[in-house]
Write a protein that binds this DNA or RNA. Structure first.
Lengths: 338, 338
DNA sequence: ATTTAGCACTCTTCCCTTTTGACTGCTAAT
DNA sequence: ATTAGCAGTCAAAAGGGAAGAGTGCTAAAT
């Protein structure tokens, strides 16, 4: 075997071994593990080279090798493309999609929990969000004399509600009439289209359509759908978190204002899965972690995000392959819905 | 001062000192802190007595005192009744309630976060839930030829949605008519009342009202509203959690199936605030913690729960007084809404 | 009957040293 | 290019005071 090849093998073994054990990998462990027909001394020469090239570091002068960000990056690039989820797990995921999808929220939570157990890490899924919301239906319900509830139904069965105060007492009858009228006028329109189509409306109707447009605009402005988070316990029970301050950093991030943005700040590539390793991430609290994100949905229509958050030492193969499989399945579901 | 009185004072000082420092309390610290005109030796006699009575334990033979569950229980009983939140904080809370309450969910989250920061612990608030939901309004929106979305609006502006499949193609016009008809028939009714009032309905209408009743029944069956959880980072950054397995226990509990029930399993007393200390709690994962819960709302109408979860060593005075204040304010809000 | 001073005793914590075992780095031979 | 062998390095574990904090007990004082 050529030296170059063996060195790559050694690096791969180091990475995979470290991923499963979380312990610096010794040269004889490498020989024992992969059954290479060379002596540990040879491996040591190789790891020395790998260290020089920045693929591994060691905690101290006489310790085994631990992979650097660069090594993980190399590893991820090398596996990308030819990763497939084991059949059993593919099957389970498919099964999951055949089962009732009654309540989207509950369903996404379940999926997130399942994935979290699969990859043994924290999983975030955001509900699908339309790029440009279109109005489908509205409804007005009298709450008190001057106050009523505006219920807006958007395509994809998304519901928003808003309380409206009128200047005069408006009966439920009147409200129903206005709701029907406005629904028939605006059905299928976007927020801006609604604003552009105001002629011939009564003062109250104008107020309603104003509020409607605002609601839709607010919805459009959101970058993400509702996030569902599962598997925090799995992430935080990883050995790298016991004792250190890293855990609190994560908790603080997760309870912070818009953590979704700081996590998913990176642009997405093609349709595929993105991997952000350690310090590649601009967010300091995440620089000891890796992030694997995929987008599902129909491009330029509606989409959501699925992300796995784990230590840099994570099972990239499993995470990437599950995400590939899951985003495909979710995309199908969304496509059907639209 | 009588001996009995002094011993109570000593116990109180031990508890309060331990609450703030999390360190076993030494006899001379007690003298220094409270300025009692006796020597440490006297205090030692007192703590020996308290230990015998089961109010304090010590980590080892020559360590200071730490309060037992029993001590905390005594302490809580002794303060109950005459705790008032400092004016500044009362003011802040009141302010919070004057500010816009646009979106209930967002609002409760904010309140929970505020309270969490106040008591430096984990806070759970559940949204108010009616004991017996009453129907207010429904709406039907065509999704596909045979499929439509049933939107149910309950009193308290609560919205539920459900997908319905008919046996034939139903137009939006028809749907609207049915929605109006059913709304006018059922407005104000409970689930069982709706089921009892089926005569004169078309087959589709019966199907809808069936589904409506189920939705309401499902809502009635829920024990709690939607939970909002804030301050996990505050709880887990308490010194008792660094390193130990306690943290993971909590995370597991919180990600478990129906943790709300296991937390709030205890019956509530009068309208007041309940305190469950350590092993008083049947749930093993919570036996190192204390739980302070209050119910807000209008009895037999609609109510929700506010809970503070912290180490046994927590600021009971602040927690109880904030909860008293908060539940009163929330109850007012709910009363207005009904 | 309480309270107190004094002192011996206990136990943790901190720091230092030693030992052990796991690995590597290097060198010289293959 | 590879390997055996061995010296060197380092972390983690184990041991051993020494210091410090704090109590328990006893005998005397109030």
């Amino acid at each position: 075997m050529a030296v170059r090849d063996r060195r790559e093998t050694v690096l791969r073994v180091i990475i995979e071994e470290y991923i499963t054990t979380a312990v610096p990998v010794a040269s004889n462990a490498i020989v024992a593990k992969h059954g290479l027909r060379v002596s540990p001394a040879t491996i040591r020469n190789d790891t020395a080279y790998l260290e020089q090239e920045g693929y591994v570091v060691r905690p101290h002068r006489s310790a085994g090798s631990v992979p650097t960000d660069r090594a993980y990056r190399y590893y991820v690039e090398s596996i990308e493309g030819d990763v497939e989820l084991p059949y059993v797990e593919q099957y389970l995921l498919h099964r999951m999609f055949q089962d009732a999808q009654e309540e989207l929220e509950q369903w996404l939570k379940t999926v997130a929990g399942f994935l979290a157990d699969l990859v043994h890490n924290l999983v975030v899924i955001t509900s699908p969000k339309a790029v440009r919301c279109r109005f489908k239906h509205l409804d007005l319900v009298a709450l008190q004399d001057f106050v009523s509830l505006l219920v807006v139904i958007l395509y994809e069965a998304k519901i928003r509600r808003q309380v409206l105060s009128f200047n005069r007492k408006v009966s439920q009858d009147e409200l129903t009439k206005m709701a029907n009228r406005l629904t028939s006028i605006y059905e299928g329109m976007t927020g801006t289209e609604i604003l552009a189509r105001q002629e011939g409306l009564s003062s109250e109707e104008r107020q309603i359509s104003q509020c409607l447009a605002e609601t839709i605009a607010a919805e459009d402005k959101l970058e993400f759908g509702e996030p569902y988070l599962e598997g925090l316990r799995l992430l935080l029970s990883q050995p790298e978190f016991t004792g250190g301050p890293g855990m609190l950093q994560i908790l603080e991030l997760l309870e912070g204002e818009d953590w979704l943005r700081s996590i998913f700040s990176q642009e997405f590539g093609r349709g595929g899965v993105r991997v952000v390793i350690g310090e590649e991430n601009p967010e300091p609290a995440l620089q000891d972690l890796s992030l694997i994100t995929g987008r599902y949905g129909v491009p330029d229509k509606a989409s959501g995000i699925v992300g796995v958050i784990g230590p840099k030492r994570m099972d990239y193969v499993k995470a990437i392959s599950s995400l590939n499989c899951l985003t495909a399945l979710l995309s199908n579901s969304v496509a059907e819905y639209i």
